[in-house]
């Protein structure tokens, strides 16, 4: 019998559809009987949505500037003589 703790271990696999058919059935049976685990799965799923919606990819502007500088330097060294045509 699948216990709440077992379900918590495989919750991400369930959410992502990575569980085998037998385990999926066990999880679904457990969820029918257990409100706490329904809440857990729901809230874990909400956390995943939150991570996806949150573009925390804040750009480090200073790093981008340094990279731009080095790239420009190399491009110029390489193309010295040629204009930049597109």
């Amino acid at each position: 019998m699948l216990m709440c703790r077992d379900l918590a271990r495989i919750a991400s696999d369930y959410i992502d559809g990575e569980l085998g058919p037998m385990d999926t059935v066990s999880v679904k049976m457990h969820l029918m009987m257990c409100g706490h685990c329904r809440t857990f799965i729901g809230n874990l799923r909400a956390s995943v949505d939150l991570i996806n919606a949150h573009s925390s990819q804040q750009l480090d502007e200073e790093l981008v500037r340094r990279i731009d500088e080095r790239v420009t330097e190399s491009l110029n060294a390489r193309n010295s003589g040629n204009g930049n045509s597109d």
């Binding site: 216990m3 077992d6 706490h36 857990f40 909400a46 949505d49 996806n52 919606a53 949150h54």
Partner: peptide
């Protein structure tokens, strides 16, 4: 025995977008 001793708190019905409009939550996530 493998059951919840401290179960998860109540389910939120707000969408991720709505939650993120709360700047403090967004900062906390960062």
């Amino acid at each position: 025995n493998g059951r919840w001793a401290t179960p998860p708190s109540l389910k939120t019905n707000e969408s991720a977008q709505a939650l993120l409009e709360n700047g403090a939550l967004s900062d906390c996530l960062d």
